[in-house]
């Protein structure tokens, strides 16, 4: 499938300006400046502890930044509860540990938010849920409980759950890191399909093959800073900074 990068000068949907975050005294995000255009697909990589998960969790306010300005879909994120709620309605998130609700069936997991946040009637919510389940190719498991599914299936359900709210931006926080190797591919296939449909994606991952195939831009973070960012081809073939080269040599060695 062809993945077309967004046209230049598309408006930015996510804007970081000089964003800083501390965990107690630990300076985890340092002067982050980042702009994500609508329809752009970003992959963030880096060693553990570099702040990449913290960065994307700031986008839907699961983490609070202390200084700097962060705007999502034109709304500035701050203590304002209304702002946070409106941002969360437009941003979907997929977690490393899936975080499905184990006491609800797959279908109930998906209809929960549309009914309670989107105020959809039950029939419509279920229809939308089945649509998303078909999209991730897991419609036949709709009436099972999460713990009855394999890891790969659970993560696909988690993706479908996030998509049920028709978000404009999708965030992925190491979606395949907790999966057995043979299940990683089924999840990556779903993410590639999603990418080809034009949704804005910010993805933290170690899957470099996926990054090469899908990303418009790859960002390397280390010690809380963005060290290098480039198009996928240029990033992997001609890394400029020596820290990037060091990291890539470790990751791509085997």
């Amino acid at each position: 499938m062809s993945i077309t990068p967004p046209a230049p000068n598309t408006p930015a949907v996510i804007e970081f300006s000089k964003v800083n975050k501390w965990f107690a005294d630990f300076h985890v995000l340092r002067d982050i400046d980042l702009s994500v255009a609508r329809g752009e697909r970003i992959v963030i990589c880096g060693p553990s502890g570099s702040g990449k998960s913290t960065l994307i969790r700031c986008i839907n306010r699961l983490e609070e930044h202390q200084t700097g300005c962060l705007k999502v879909e034109g709304v500035e994120l701050s203590d304002d509860v209304q702002a946070i709620e409106s941002v969360r309605r437009q941003v979907g998130m997929v977690f490393q540990q899936f975080n499905l609700f184990p006491h609800l069936t797959v279908l109930d997991n998906l209809t929960l938010a549309p009914m309670w946040v989107g105020k959809l009637p039950k029939a419509q919510a279920e229809e939308r849920a089945m649509q998303q389940l078909r999209r991730v190719r897991i419609a036949e498991q709709a009436h099972k409980y999460p713990l009855q599914l394999s890891g790969g299936q659970q993560q696909r359900v988690a993706i479908a759950r996030a998509l049920c709210l028709t978000p404009k931006i999708m965030l992925f926080d190491e979606p395949t890191s907790a999966l057995d190797p043979e299940m990683i591919n089924e999840v990556l296939e779903v993410m590639v399909e999603l990418a080809s449909q034009g949704i804005t994606m910010v993805c933290v991952t170690h899957e470099m093959g996926f990054a090469r195939q899908v990303a418009d831009r790859v960002i390397f973070m280390d010690e809380g800073q963005i060290v290098e960012q480039n198009t996928a081809a240029a990033f992997f073939d001609h890394p400029q900074n020596e820290r990037t080269q060091d990291f890539l040599s470790k990751i791509l060695a085997h």
């Binding site: 800083n20 107690a24 340092r30 002067d31 060290v227």
Partner: peptide
């Protein structure tokens, strides 16, 4: 790329 040293929180 210019590395930034860690600072104290405000």
């Amino acid at each position: 790329f210019i590395p930034i040293a860690a600072r104290q929180p405000p």
